[in-house]
Design a protein around this nucleic acid. Structure first.
Lengths: 115, 115
DNA sequence: TAGTCTATATTGTATATCCAATATTGGGCA
DNA sequence: TGCCCAATATTGGATATACAATATAGACTA
């Protein structure tokens, strides 16, 4: 992220990353969830992540992750002019469903008890 | 984790870590949430994590994390015979509240839309 | 065609998890 | 007292995620 602890980087109206815990991790999970809404190119994905995490991931974080996810068959991409559009593969959709089940098992109560 | 992908390590009736995404991260967040229910010693915390993640964290993961969290003032501990009992500090409680807000902002919809 | 802008991409470094293996400590019991 | 066992602790190494800095590619405009 470009401005992790205080200084604004893009316009978001949501709370910043906590000081107490780093909360790194699960980037590919989040990307898969975002792509389950529809195909998107890299910078669009970055903006979607920024809406949630209040900061855009660095290109050096995002692109190698997308490349790795493609290598593992979770996403596929096609070059469209200057951009590269990513979409979930069917293996990616299956993996996401499994990952969500695990995620809810591990963290679901934290969300639900705050509602 | 001791038996990450298939082989059972302890008796849990929940789904295993997904193959598609690593889902490492947020250990201190999870520990803080668990400790918000009451004081606990190291191996009890490990069992609570195992109930959620279907695998016990390795001692080489858990204890250094607890030590670091204590250094940062999030938890405090007292030695009780052979065990060391951890509890949240008030800074830890404040930090947890802030972290939960951020967590729900980033991942809340994933839980809610599966309900 | 040259300049500019955005998107993509890479390199190098840092760090929070992660494990395997091993060591230490303290309680309970023969 | 001596032995075993669970809990704690440490060491060494791996890896996903993170950034800063830089480089390349393609589109659009003057």
């Amino acid at each position: 992220m470009t401005a992790r602890r205080g200084e604004a980087s893009i316009d978001v109206e949501c709370c910043r990353a906590p000081v107490c815990c780093d909360m790194r991790g699960m980037l590919s999970f989040l990307i898969m969830h975002i792509l389950s809404k529809g195909p998107m190119y890299g910078m669009e994905i970055a903006e979607e992540i920024a809406k949630r995490k209040a900061d855009k991931p660095n290109p050096g974080t995002l692109y190698p992750t997308l490349k790795d996810m493609q290598k593992r068959g979770l996403v596929e991409s096609t070059k469209k002019g200057n951009t590269r559009v990513y979409k979930l593969t069917s293996a990616g959709r299956d993996g996401l469903a499994q990952a969500k089940e695990y995620f809810i098992q591990a963290y679901g109560d934290i969300v639900l008890e705050s509602m």
